[in-house]
Simulated assay, not measured.
Amino acid sequence: MESSVRTTTLPCGEAIPVLGQGTWKMGEDSRRRSDEVNALKLGLDLGVTLIDTAEMYAGGGAEEVVAKAIAGRRAEVFLVSKVLPSNASRAGVQRACENSLKRLATDR
């Protein structure tokens, strides 16, 4: 399926969608996990390949939902995640990123 989502080009030359999928409130209720994963997958199918999440959303649970949604499709997804203000130091950001990568089940 061809995407109709407009893109913008980053300075590195990579094109990313100008519209992304948010994950706030995802990962808070395990009974909704399947629906949340399927919603993200549908967005990917429709060409919304930018997913925004954060370590603070459901204590990392939203990142775990994203991991399930992008399994086998990582190459087509542009991930954005944020760190808590309490992790806003050189060591804190590095540790937060490493933990997010683990929850997202990716190396980048």
Rank of each mutant, 00 (worst) to 15 (best):
D107W: 00
E63W: 00
D107M: 00
S89D: 01
V5T: 03
E98W: 07
V77F: 05
L19E: 03
D52P: 11
V93L: 12
G60W: 06
S86Q: 12
E55I: 07
L50R: 13
M56L: 01
C12S: 15
K102W: 00
S4E: 13
G72H: 01
N99R: 12
D107F: 04
M56F: 02
G20E: 02
A91H: 14
V48Q: 10
S81A: 09
R32Y: 12
A88T: 03
A71N: 04
C12A: 12
L46C: 15
G13Q: 07
R6F: 08
R6V: 09
G92N: 06
M26V: 02
S100W: 03
R73H: 11
K25D: 05
K68H: 13
V37D: 10
A62H: 06
E14A: 13
T49C: 11
G92M: 11
L104G: 06
E64Y: 05
S86V: 13
L79H: 05
R108S: 10
E36R: 04
K25N: 08
E28G: 11
D107A: 04
L104F: 09
P17M: 06
Q21G: 02
K102M: 01
T106E: 01
E98L: 13
I51R: 10
G61S: 11
T9K: 15
W24R: 10
K82V: 05
G43W: 05
D29F: 02
M56K: 00
R73A: 11
A15D: 05
G13Y: 10
V48H: 14
A88K: 10
N38V: 00
S89L: 01
Q21E: 06
G72V: 00
S89P: 02
T53V: 08
T9Q: 15
G92E: 09
L19G: 03
R6Y: 04
T7V: 13
G72D: 07
S86H: 08
R73M: 01
A54F: 14
M26A: 04
V93C: 09
G61H: 11
A54Q: 10
T8F: 07
E28P: 04
S34L: 10
E36C: 07
T49R: 14
V18P: 08
V80G: 07
K25V: 13
G22W: 05
T9W: 05
R32L: 15
P85L: 14
R6H: 02
R32W: 07
R90Y: 15
T53P: 05
E55F: 03
E36S: 11
R6Q: 14
N87H: 15
L84T: 06
M1T: 06
G61C: 10
C97L: 15
Q21L: 15
R32Q: 15
Q94Y: 14
R90M: 14
V5I: 09
L44Y: 05
V93N: 11
P11K: 14
L50V: 10
A62R: 09
T7I: 09
A62V: 09
A91Q: 15
E76N: 12
C97H: 12
D107Y: 00
